[in-house]
């Protein structure tokens, strides 16, 4: 996997829990061009342990001088976002992957409806830049808790003009998905990124209104859940490792010196899929990638977010 070395050029406190980081290439060279909706995976060395978190690129894809990511501080998590907030300063050096797009706009779309909740706004920032450049028809719906939580509202107003629709929950403005999804012209595509209940509610409404799946797109990167520690045997590498409660299997393998493939680290893309050769207990699938049938069969697992509760787990890696 190609890696970029970047330096933090600027940090902006956007709301009380969101910071915006401007990243530049360590030698000032241009960064790779990307497409709207792309993310990078940022590696952080936290007390000698490598954490890798995916963040959407939110700058204009045409700007290759710098990348922009925003991080919401998650107190009850494994420390990546807290480290980004407290440990990363202007001048800090980070490693990031090349951009990957798992949330691209459908080029066949005649109209695009973008729906964001909270920090879920970030992938849309670069998509809007693409839509504006291409002159495509779109609506941007952005829901957040209260006025002070509305990150990037001014910037969005400038980018979207009257295509922007704000829904401020504290002022009683919830998005009515039923209305939003009714009477849309043929060829409309809808994209949603935000908290899980919001995404699920939108997917359900779309289904109830007969929208085909091919027109409904969502992006949800899950943070690896914290669980109990367990042991994993790795057949090809012929080793046994412990997965601590606050580490994912993928991280534990990396910690042990392996270099498994990955792209999203959030259970969405399927890149890190591993074959399960033996398991004497229960696999705890947390991903969005495997089908229910695949999960039930117990032959595959996504080590980026899924865990196991068992005495023996043997993986083909």
């Amino acid at each position: 996997m190609s890696i970029l070395n970047v330096r933090v050029a600027e940090i902006e406190q956007v709301t009380d829990v969101v910071k915006h980081f401007t990243l530049v290439e360590e030698n000032g060279r241009p960064l790779p061009r990307f497409s709207g909706g792309s993310h990078v995976v940022v590696s952080m060395n936290i007390n000698g342990r490598i954490h890798r978190n995916p963040y959407s690129l939110m700058g204009s894809p045409e700007n290759t001088d710098s990348y922009h990511i925003s991080v919401r501080r998650q107190e009850k998590s494994r420390g990546g976002s807290v480290f980004m907030h407290d440990g990363v300063k202007v001048g800090s050096e980070l490693q990031i992957t090349y951009p990957v797009n798992l949330f691209s706009l459908s080029k066949l779309g005649k109209k695009h409806i973008l729906v964001a909740g909270g920090i879920g706004i970030t992938p849309f920032m670069s998509q809007i830049a693409d839509l504006n450049r291409l002159g495509d028809d779109y609506e941007m719906h952005y829901a957040f808790r209260s006025a002070e939580h509305g990150a990037f509202v001014e910037q969005l107003k400038q980018m979207c003009g009257d295509r922007l629709h704000l829904h401020i929950e504290s002022e009683g403005q919830r998005i009515n998905f039923q209305n939003l999804l009714s009477n849309q012209p043929l060829g409309t595509h809808i994209y949603v990124c935000g908290p899980e209940p919001m995404v699920n509610a939108l997917l359900l409404t779309a289904k109830d209104l007969g929208w085909p799946k091919t027109h409904v797109h969502s992006e949800q990167f899950l943070a690896p859940p914290i669980g109990e520690s367990f042991m994993v045997q790795l057949a090809k590498s012929n080793m046994e490792i412990e997965v601590p409660g606050d580490m994912s299997m993928l991280e534990a393998m990396e910690e042990a010196g392996l270099e498994p493939d990955f792209l999203c680290r959030g259970g969405a893309c399927g890149r890190c899929e591993v074959e399960v050769l033996e398991c004497d207990g229960a696999l705890m699938h947390n991903d969005h990638y495997l089908s229910d049938a695949e999960k039930a069969s117990g032959n595959k697992i996504m080590p980026c977010v899924s865990r196991a509760r068992c005495q023996k787990l043997l993986l083909n890696i």
């Binding site: 999804l181 009714s182 009477n183 849309q184 012209p185 043929l186 409309t188 209104l209 007969g210 929208w211 027109h215």
Partner: peptide, 10 residues
Amino acid sequence: RLKDCTMGTH
């Protein structure tokens, strides 16, 4: 007719 159809039409 397609001009008047909306999403959700089968």
